[in-house]
Design a binder for these strands. Sequence first.
DNA 1: CGAGTTTGACCAGCGC
DNA 2: GCGCTGGTCAAACTCG
Length: 227
Amino acid sequence: MENLREGDDHLQLQGDDELFRHFRYMQSPPLMEQQPPQSSTCDAAADHLGGQPGMPMPGLVDWASLLLPLGPGAAAGSTSQQQVAAGAVGEEMVSGVTGAAAPESGAGSSSGVGREETKGKSSARGRGSRKASRPRFAFQTKSENDVLDDGYRWRKYGQKAVKNSAFPRSYYRCTHHTCNVKKQVQRLAKDTSIVVTTYEGVHNHPCEKLMEALNPILRQLQFLSQL
DNA sequence: CGAGTTTGACCAGCGC
DNA sequence: GCGCTGGTCAAACTCG
């Protein structure tokens, strides 16, 4: 696995379509300045999508699709530009991104990529055969906070010291009962101001904070549409 | 008391 | 085959 090259600040962001809905705008800038904790990344994404210079089709957000529960077939309903993003996602590319986003530590190495949890204690505690990995998606944020507030709720289930890194890697799972999306968070050893977040899987439910924020508007729209 | 975090142990894959 | 490493589990603990 190829590690992050020295000075490789052009991490290309790739991933599943759902994540692109939130982070697609980050494809051009090498780093995303993390938003303050009080504003979720969903909101941040909204802000950036409208105003980030150099963004592909800035301001064109398919909000309706954001509100749809996202499943494996959800990409079929994506907009054309989303399909372009989603279509670029393949295992090789995703692995490459993961490796690029995890310098030094060996994260994204062959031993790590694609390891999948299986349910049930007996099946080697989820360390059975490596099935074809779910889409993985890594990006860097420049922030003092390790955990990027992306609008979803996460439960930490592990923390590991990784080789050649003074900072441990944290493991999170989405707390939504039907969603088994995971993410890893690790701070770069070379640049401690940079946090590498690796998402694995696709949320099959809407962003909670976004829904919370949009609910009053949606209700109003519903009311108006009835008139 | 429930939800989330911490942390040591366990296990599989990989390289040598 | 063995040791190293990463990923996960689960009991204990903390917090609201």
